[in-house]
């Protein structure tokens, strides 16, 4: 069995290391040199220190869902450029480049699938696409999926990774927070279960909306999860931040997460939770 047969790329940071080291790669956590294949077979979790490297969105489908059960929704939805936004580069060009780089149309994949035979709805964000930022498309796809899940009585799983709201869509991005939270709230009120899985990194408007509006919140080990990113905080308070600040274990200790779960135990954990509610 090869879980990662269809994967054509890895996270950018790993790819960079590869260029230098060929068949070997350096763990971003402990800097141990590891055989590429060994890391891949271990779901990109370091076999020495347990560091969870970032993985692209589609790998989560294989990690969590029963084989060949994923049915993708809203595949034709793409971002346009409502503000005609130009910074160092026009937003339109950034979008084209991101589509080419991530081989995805935007920063979230949504759809229906099965987990251990149970029919669920799932949305998975992709950090490779403009830092997983939430603009109109991300907001709309998540709201639609959630509304469909409410209608079809399916539990909802969200795998989050995001730099926050997409600045290039201005105030429209901010409003996606209200839109997605509203939809999730109705889903919860219908007696259905929603679970967020927060992965490295999840920050800004995403953390302050749908990613924390769910019934339960799980995080991968060592993930950066924040409202304001560490750089913004350092600039504001002008002092160094404590070790481990805003990492999953820190947040667990401050009562903000239900649990921290390793990548290879995530599916098993979801199945356990579903058993409780049904």
């Amino acid at each position: 069995m090869n879980w990662f047969q269809r994967v054509r790329y890895r996270s950018r940071r790993i790819a960079k290391e590869e260029a230098v080291t060929g068949l070997w790669t350096k763990c971003l956590g402990c800097e141990t040199m590891l055989p590429k294949n060994e890391l891949k077979d271990n779901l990109f979790v370091c076999t020495v220190c347990g560091y969870h490297h970032r993985i692209p969105a589609r790998q989560w489908i294989k990690l969590l869902l029963d084989p060949n059960t994923f049915e993708e929704h809203d595949v034709r939805m793409i971002s346009c450029d409502p503000l005609e936004f130009v910074d160092e580069k026009p937003y339109k060009i950034r979008l084209d480049e991101s589509r080419a780089k991530a081989q995805e149309r935007d920063a979230v994949i949504t759809g229906y699938g099965d987990i251990d035979g149970r029919k669920i709805a799932i949305s998975i964000m992709n950090f490779e696409f403009m830092g997983g930022s939430m603009g109109s498309v991300v907001g709309e796809k998540i709201a639609r999926l959630t509304e469909n899940a409410t209608r079809d009585r399916r539990h909802l799983v969200i795998v989050a990774t995001s730099g926050g709201a997409r600045m290039q869509e201005g105030i429209l991005s901010l409003m996606q927070m209200a839109k997605t939270v509203g939809a999730i709230s109705k889903h919860k009120d219908s007696g259905l279960l929603s679970i967020s899985i927060l992965t490295d990194p999840t920050t800004g408007g995403t953390t302050a909306s749908f990613a924390t509006a769910t019934n339960l919140i799980i995080a991968e080990p060592g993930a950066l999860i924040a409202f304001a990113g560490p750089r913004v905080i350092e600039q504001t308070i002008r002092q160094k931040l404590p070790q481990g600040f805003q990492r999953s274990e820190f947040l667990l200790g401050h009562g903000q997460l239900d649990m921290v779960v390793k990548r290879n135990e995530m599916r098993k954990t979801l199945i356990r939770i579903f058993k409780f509610v049904d």
Binding site: I78, C80, S136, G139, L172, M175, Q176, A178, K179, G182
Partner: peptide, 10 residues
């Protein structure tokens, strides 16, 4: 709030 957002469906 549900209606806010501008996108394209190809």
């Amino acid at each position: 709030f549900r209606k806010i957002g501008i996108f394209h469906e190809a």
